[in-house]
């Protein structure tokens, strides 16, 4: 439906469930995709499964230098400036605040929010020149609702939303949009291991009665990346089966 032919994209955290689904959907829509993450083997597997052209560029988002050079390396591998950035990588260090160590907080903020600052800063320069760009931050429902045991993660995800709104205002006049997607509970290796009782309780909170799929998030990303979404900026698109209506 949405045509991304001739566009280039960088997806971070592309070896994970949501990231790989986003990469696949962007590729299906015609974009040439750079896959980033730490696990090269898994990224290669994702790349070989893409319907279109793709490249692998590894990066460790806890390493500032690695992040700073990532956009440049992706553009070199893709052979052109980036049209679409999907900042999807993130980590958790879940603990109750009473048990949360300073490094648990700092690591999560640094990887989830700090790398978003670094990536967007390095990508926006070229986008401004080209008068076109799509920045998509993958945040989380808990960045808006909160979740016990995740004060650090919730802060980082809420931070992405505020950051995106400021960025969207700064660059809107240059044809660049910046938006967030906030997934609810998405089926993944992380949710697979939850005890059945907890899964049941979770499902009870979701009006659609099921967990989301990576492809649900990917479809939202394709829309926000498209020309049709040119007038949508600074928004957070909640994809959560009705779990929170904001």
């Amino acid at each position: 439906m949405f045509d991304l032919s001739g566009r280039t994209a960088l997806v971070t955290g592309a070896s994970g469930g949501i990231g790989s689904a986003i990469a696949k959907s962007l590729s299906e829509a015609g974009a040439k995709v750079a896959l980033s993450g730490t696990r090269e083997g898994v990224l290669e597997e994702v790349r070989s499964g893409l319907p279109g052209e793709g490249v692998v560029v590894t990066a460790n988002l806890s390493d500032a230098e690695s992040v700073d050079s990532l956009v440049g390396r992706a553009e070199e591998a893709l052979g052109g400036g980036l049209d679409i950035l999907v900042a999807n990588a993130g980590i958790t260090r879940d603990k109750l605040l009473m048990q949360m160590k300073p490094e648990d907080f700092d690591d999560v903020m640094n990887v989830n929010l700090g790398s978003y600052y670094r990536l967007t800063k390095s990508v926006v320069r070229g986008m401004m020149k080209r008068r076109h760009g799509r920045i998509i931050g993958i945040t989380s429902i808990v960045g808006v609702t909160g979740n016990p045991g995740q004060a650090n993660y919730c802060a980082s995800k809420a931070g992405m939303i505020g950051f995106t709104k400021a960025l969207a205002q700064e660059v809107a006049s240059r044809g660049i949009t910046a938006n967030c997607i906030a997934p609810g509970f998405i089926e993944s290796p992380m949710t697979d291991v939850l005890p059945d009782a907890q899964k049941e309780a979770l499902l009870g909170q979701i009006p659609s009665g099921k967990l989301g799929q990576g492809s649900d998030i990917a479809s939202a990303a394709v829309y926000l990346a498209s020309s049709e979404a040119a007038y949508v900026t600074g928004q957070t698109l909640h994809v959560n089966g009705g779990m929170a209506m904001i």
């Binding site: 320069r125 401004m128 020149k129 700064e170 660059v171 006049s173 240059r174």
Partner: peptide, 9 residues
């Protein structure tokens, strides 16, 4: 301010 950034670029 954004024009200025672009000029510097």
């Amino acid at each position: 301010s954004l024009d200025l950034v672009e000029l510097v670029m």
